[in-house]
C-alpha cells in the first residue's frame, strides 16, 4: 500500500466472476506522511481511505465481471460505517460483492476486516465508462499485474 499514490490494494486473493465476489488484502504501512497529520501521536487510517479501499476492491471486481471493457468510477457512497479504527501495520482483508449491474452503472457492498473483525462497510455505486484513453488502460493493466489480477478470468 502506498497511501500517497492511492495504491490501496496489495493483492487480489480471490476473484469469482460467476459469483461476482472478490477478496483482496491491503497492508497498512507503519509510516506515511498521511499519519503525520492524521493524527500526531495517534496515527489512524482516515475513514475516507477506508472507503477508497473498499471502492478499489469493488473496482477490481467490476473490471473482472466486465472483462476490462469498462472502467468503474465511484459515484456514490451509502451507509458507510467505520466500526473500528485501522492502525498502521494492520492487514486489511477486504471483500466486495456485486449487488446490481445496471445499464452504465453498478452497485456493490464491501467490508473491511482486520483479524476477522469488521472495521468498516459500505454500499457503493459506480458509473461504468469506456476507458477514456490508452494511457489509463495501460495504467490499469500495469496495476492489474502488480496486484495479481487473475487474467484467466477475463480471457475469452
Amino acid at each position: 500500500m502506498q497511501l500517497e499514490y492511492f495504491h490501496m490494494i496489495d493483492r487480489i486473493v480471490g476473484l469469482n466472476v460467476d459469483e461476482k465476489k472478490i477478496a483482496v488484502e491491503a497492508q497498512v504501512p507503519m509510516e506515511s506522511t498521511v499519519f503525520e497529520g492524521h493524527f500526531p501521536g495517534y496515527p489512524l487510517m482516515p475513514g475516507v481511505l477506508l472507503i477508497e479501499s473498499m471502492a478499489q476492491a469493488s473496482g477490481w471486481l467490476l473490471l473482472g465481471v466486465l472483462k476490462f471493457e469498462r472502467m468503474p468510477i465511484l459515484a456514490a457512497v451509502k451507509e458507510a460505517k467505520v466500526r473500528g479504527s485501522v492502525l498502521p501495520g494492520e492487514l486489511m482483508s477486504i471483500e466486495a460483492g456485486l449487488v446490481h449491474e445496471g445499464s452504465g452503472y453498478a452497485m456493490t457492498e464491501a467490508k473491511i476486516r482486520v483479524g476477522g473483525k469488521l472495521r468498516a462497510n459500505s454500499t457503493l455505486t459506480f458509473t461504468l465508462i469506456p476507458f477514456p484513453n490508452a494511457d489509463m488502460r495501460s495504467h490499469m493493466d500495469a496495476i492489474a499485474k502488480r496486484v495479481g489480477f487473475p487474467q484467466q478470468t477475463v480471457s475469452p
Partner: peptide, 9 residues
C-alpha cells in the same frame, strides 16, 4: 443523473 441511478436501481 446521479439520483436517477438510484431510481433506476
Amino acid at each position: 443523473s446521479l439520483d436517477f441511478l438510484d431510481i433506476a436501481f
